[in-house]
Each structure stands twice: as structure tokens, then as C-alpha cells.
Design a binder for these strands. Structure first.
Lengths: 346, 346
DNA sequence: AGAGATGACGGAAACGGTTCCATGATATAA
DNA sequence: TTATATCATGGAACCGTTTCCGTCATCTCT
């Protein structure tokens, strides 16, 4: 057995097996055009020497690293949403014999592209074949990335400030349709006094709010919303909004929270005020985080298939690598209404 | 500007700048022994050609990839505990100009080492310099890894079935001391009717239970515990145990949950039975997950510095790489009692 | 039997860097 | 002035694979 320093090379294997370099290489890569008996001799030598091919030497020739980089922009991880996307990427990668690098960036969304300080993982060429951009992404950053000419795919729901056509591949979920489903379900249960809660300074909140209004159009004259921009965490925003919801003269029978975290904050302030869910007021969230199940009663929400998004991100990236000239795609995965216990029939 | 296929090499740069290969290489690596004027000419050429050095070609010579692999054993990610360890690894890596690969393994903990199917990320040599093993690790797997002769460090708190000396580096937190602190704090507030809740089929639960007993020794004659092994999630275990806690003839005044998830389950069943926390019964958890803050009142718990564990894992691994012959280390990070609202003074 | 195709194999060249040695120029010391 | 050290530089050799080409043997078809 060898130490790390004097690891066996393909030449050692060739000598040990009494064959040429090419033969060993052929055995390592599928073994076509190698006699069975020779092949076995080589495999024995490989096993005996504990040979493992050098990753770099391979990649330098193959011009492919079989590695993709999952890059998380301007986020902390504990955000389990993105962790689950990463999990999906990794699951899929394992099946496809690809590997995953994980990196993070923090940048100023208002800086011009060429002033963004890129993480050192992007300094070299060929470290990975392509990028999966997750977290919150702004035009300046994507412009900068584009200049590197590395194929990439973007998680599309957290794009901010983009207008018009996008010259890159996107994967995301259908926030509009998801919210539409949620609101229609609440309407279907007889609710007419609805209220939407979500800070519209986030673009994806605006999308969901639009869906809310759209769903309400034929049923409600003046749908109400709390959408004030505030510098609060989602949970705190919900807690703050909860007070205002309860102080309405005409108290709503159901509240549509823009996501589960806001729903959680609402739930908290309702409970504090002794307002019971769902008997006094109904509540629906969005995302289907783990916490939704922990709430009591468990939260009715819209499931986003996070792992699935990760899988499709990777698949799309690999397609792009195979077909560099392919037209840009925008993949939108469906959401699913998860009916639990926070919405009651009126 | 070049397409991906005909990327500029160091030779192109040398030609463009009118210098030799060695000079360009020197400029790329710190620029010692290069005249300022020459150096600038080279940098101009690099910029003009959009040259980025080839990652593989570098690594093949340097014998270092500057990459570490974070390998998660037998786990799903959504477990935010491990996600935060990864975050710590990445943060630290970014500062130290290292990169991180992320991989997962699933293996049968009862299989003999040589029958474990290793993920393909471990097939090649030199893809990364060392491993950080997180998730739940068993002796058979570590034996298998050791045979690969890749330096590695293990997150020590989720080791299962290890006995005697361990021949690898470990980083973890002090579960015993943490639990001791928690229980002593509860005792200090006057509680004498304590009850510990946690499934002792997990070894780290046994450690905390031992700490519980130790802390109680001088204050309580017969400390009570619910430690039955059951095939339940932690939350469900807590919910199940909650019923039993409340059905005690002598109802405890405080419950020590082995972790936050169990605490959550307990909280839930207490609330269902109309038992209020902390006025009717006190509750303390362990881990300080995000959910602890979401509970109402927020959970008193023991904070484990997850990101810090990640950082120390990486630092330890890098030390090991620098000093391969160094004696094995076991680093134990302190925990911190976080007093919130679920424990009251008697 | 001879031509041509195919299979098995060896080994040179290539990949794109780094390392190291040789060289000439310049500075410093004797 | 000469010997010696240091600096600036060019370029060959090397790292460990894959790729590709050439050779030889065998097989098939006329």
C-alpha cells in the first residue's frame, strides 16, 4: 500500500501488469478493444497497487470536469429553502456521475458589474463546467457572470430588477399559479372577506399579490391587502401585520400570507390576541417549509418542490453543456396546494 | 474575447506580452523576481486575452487541489443543523482561499467496510485534499474511508457505535457539559421534580441523559426519565412523551428535552392538554435551532455553535494537511445556555 | 494465396500549467 | 579590476492522464 506522496500512476499499473499505457487507459475507460484476459490482469494490478486515477490529469485532457458549482448569492444557509434545492442538485448529480461544488457570494446589488468582487472559485477556468445560481440575483451580477463565459442556469424566482428578455436559462416554480390556486381554494370554501399580507418590496411578493387580486376579481369588490414595505424579517412582518389584521373594522375571515414565515408571524399574533385558527380566522401560507407541519393546527400552504427545482436546474445545465447553441429555456415547475388544518369552510 | 473552446493559455499570454513562459507563471504566482514594467505588460496581456489559468493544469503540478469535500452521511439536507455546519465550512473556506465540494453517501451501517458502495466522488485521487465527514457515521464507513488514505476530520457528535480510542481527528461540541449547564440552571431556579425525555437508542442522547443524572445527583433522590426507544421522529417522540409526562401521578415541574425537536413535540402536547408553559410546567431544549425562537414563549435551550463547528472542522483539516504526522486531535467546542421564556422560577 | 478489414496493443504527443536550471545583466564586495 | 551574489528572464522538463497513430496478428472474402 502506498502513502499519499508516492501514489501509483498508470505507468506503475502498466509495468505491474506487463502491458502498455494505452491498454491501461482503455481498461479504465470502458475496456473496449482489450482482451478479457489482459483486462483482468490490468484490473488485478490496479487493485494490488491501490491505484486511483488522478483527477486533474484526467480532466486536463477531457476538457470536462464533470463538476457543477452551486453558487448561493447574498444568503445565509440556514434558509432551508435553498438547502433543499442544493440537496436536489446533489441527488441528481450522484445519479449522473457528476460532482457538486458549493460556494457563496456576497455582493452589492447596486454596484456596476465590473466592480463586483467575485469569489476566488471563479478565478480559474475549468474548475467546474457550469454554474447553478441560487439565492437572490441581480442584473449586475449576472452580467458579470456572463462575461466569464461559463454556462449557467439561474433559480428564477429570486431574480430582482430584471426587465424584458433574459439571456440565460432559468428554472423556477409558478408563483402566480400557486397563489391563484390557494386563493381560489379559500374562495371555494365560502370566504369573501380576504386579506393578503406580504411586503411588496420583493418582486416575487408582487407576483403573488397580483395573483391574489386576479383570483379575487370576480368574487370580491375590494380585496384588502397589507403590503407596506418594512425592514423586518418575514416572521416579524407577519407578527406586525397580524395586529393590523385584527384591528380592521370588518375583520377578514381568511388571511393569505405571502409565505409560510409570514403565516407563522400572523399565527403568533393571532394566538396572542386569543384569536383561534381556523375557527375565528383562516390562514394560508406558501412554500411548505418544514415549520408548516409543526404549527398547530398544521398550516395549509402551497408546496414548492424544492428538491425537484434542484434536479431540473442540474438537468438544464447539462443540456446546455451538451448543446451550447440551444435557445434559452425557462422551466417552470408546478406547485401543489397542501390542504391542512388552517382553513375552514364558512 | 475567446469562446470556451479556444481559451487563451499561458503561452498565448507570453507571446502577446513578448516574454517567456516562466515570467508569466511568476506574475501569476506573486510576481517576485519580475521587473515592474514587465509585470505590467504581462498583466495587460492577461486582461486583453481574458486569460484565466486552467484549474487542472495548476493542480496537477501543485499536488494540492485547495478543495475540501463536505460529505454528508445517511442524511437528508433539510436538517438545518448540518446545513449550518456546511455554511461555516464555506465561510471559512472563502477566507482561506479554499473551495468546497458537497457530496452525500448512503450506506448500510451493518455492512462490512469493503462492501460499502462509495460515491463516485471518492473514485479518483486528488479531486480534493481532504474530507469533512458530517451526518451519522459508523465504524464500518470510517474504516473504509481510512483505507483510501485521504486525510479527514469527523463531526464527532453523531458517531455511532465507536468504542475505545479513535484514530482520526474529531470536532464537536460538549453535549455533556451543555446538558449539565441546562439542568443545573433549572435546579437553580428551584425545580426539584425534573423529568428527562429522549430516546436513548441514540448514543448522544445517552451522553445527555448521563449529564442529566449527574446534575441531579446531589439534589434529587430519584430523577425520572422517559428514554424508551421508539421508532418515531423527534417531534413525534416528544408529542408521545408529553402525554406520559402529564399522566404522572407526581407531575414534574420541569421537563428536560434532549433536543429542540423533542421539546417542540412536548410543547405541542402540553398545549393540547391545556397545560401552559412556563406557568404550569417548565421546558428546556438543546441545539438552539431556528424553530426555538418561533415557539411561544421562545424556548430556553442550549446553543450549539454550528457554523463554528464547520469552521473548526476546516481549520483542523488544513492543519492535518500541513502536518500529516501530527497526533490526532479531538476538539470540543463549548455550548451556551440560552435563557428564553420556557423556564420559570419556582 | 493475397488483399483488406478488424482487433489488440504499445507508446509518442498533447493537455496547460509549474518547477527548475541555465544564462546574461547588474550590483556588491574584496 | 575581478570575484561573487543577486536579479530578471527564457525555456526544457515534468506532472499523470487521454488521444491518436502505427504495428502486428488474425480473420474474412475473393
Amino acid at each position: 500500500m502506498n502513502s499519499i506522496c508516492d501514489a501509483a500512476t498508470i505507468r506503475d499499473v502498466a509495468r505491474e501488469a506487463g502491458v502498455g499505457l494505452g491498454t491501461v487507459s482503455r481498461v479504465l475507460n470502458g475496456g473496449y478493444h482489450v482482451r478479457l484476459e489482459t483486462r483482468e490482469r490490468v484490473l488485478r494490478a490496479i487493485h494490488h497497487l491501490g491505484f486511483r486515477p488522478n483527477a486533474q490529469a484526467r480532466r486536463i485532457q477531457r476538457r470536462r470536469s464533470e463538476i457543477v458549482c452551486f453558487l448561493l448569492s447574498n444568503r445565509k444557509f440556514p434558509n432551508s429553502f435553498h438547502a433543499r434545492i442544493l440537496q436536489g442538485v446533489e441527488d441528481c448529480a450522484r445519479e449522473l456521475k457528476q460532482h457538486v461544488m458549493f460556494g457563496g457570494v456576497k455582493y452589492d446589488s447596486t454596484a456596476p458589474p465590473w466592480q463586483i468582487n467575485l469569489p476566488s472559485i471563479l478565478d480559474e477556468r475549468g474548475l467546474f463546467d457550469g454554474l447553478i445560481l441560487s439565492g437572490t440575483n441581480h442584473p449586475n451580477f449576472l452580467t458579470r457572470i456572463q462575461a466569464l463565459r461559463i454556462p449557467f442556469v439561474v433559480f428564477g424566482n429570486n431574480l430582482v430588477d430584471f426587465e424584458g428578455e433574459k439571456y440565460f436559462d432559468q428554472v423556477g416554480y409558478d408563483g402566480f399559479k400557486g397563489e391563484l390556486d390557494a386563493v381560489e381554494s379559500v374562495l371555494g370554501l365560502g370566504h369573501r372577506e380576504l386579506m393578503f399580507v406580504g411586503d411588496v418590496s420583493y418582486p416575487w411578493v408582487r407576483v403573488r399579490h397580483a395573483a391574489f387580486l386576479e383570483a379575487c376579481r370576480d368574487h370580491i369588490n375590494e380585496p384588502r391587502s397589507i403590503t407596506t414595505a418594512r425592514e423586518l424579517s418575514f416572521v416579524d412582518y407577519g407578527e406586525w401585520a397580524g395586529e393590523r389584521v385584527l384591528d380592521q373594522v370588518r375583520r377578514p375571515t381568511a388571511v393569505v400570507a405571502v409565505n409560510d414565515e409570514v403565516a407563522f408571524g400572523l399565527w403568533r399574533s393571532f394566538r396572542r390576541r386569543g384569536v383561534h385558527i381556523p375557527s375565528d380566522i383562516s390562514l394560508v401560507g406558501f412554500d411548505d417549509r418544514e415549520e408548516a407541519l409543526l404549527m398547530d393546527p398544521p398550516l395549509t400552504t402551497v408546496r414548492v418542490r424544492k428538491e425537484e427545482i434542484g434536479r431540473v436546474c442540474l438537468q438544464t445545465l447539462l443540456e446546455r453543456l451538451r448543446h451550447p447553441e440551444m435557445a434559452f429555456v425557462e422551466r417552470t415547475l408546478p406547485t401543489e396546494l397542501i390542504v391542512r388544518g388552517t382553513v375552514r369552510r364558512l
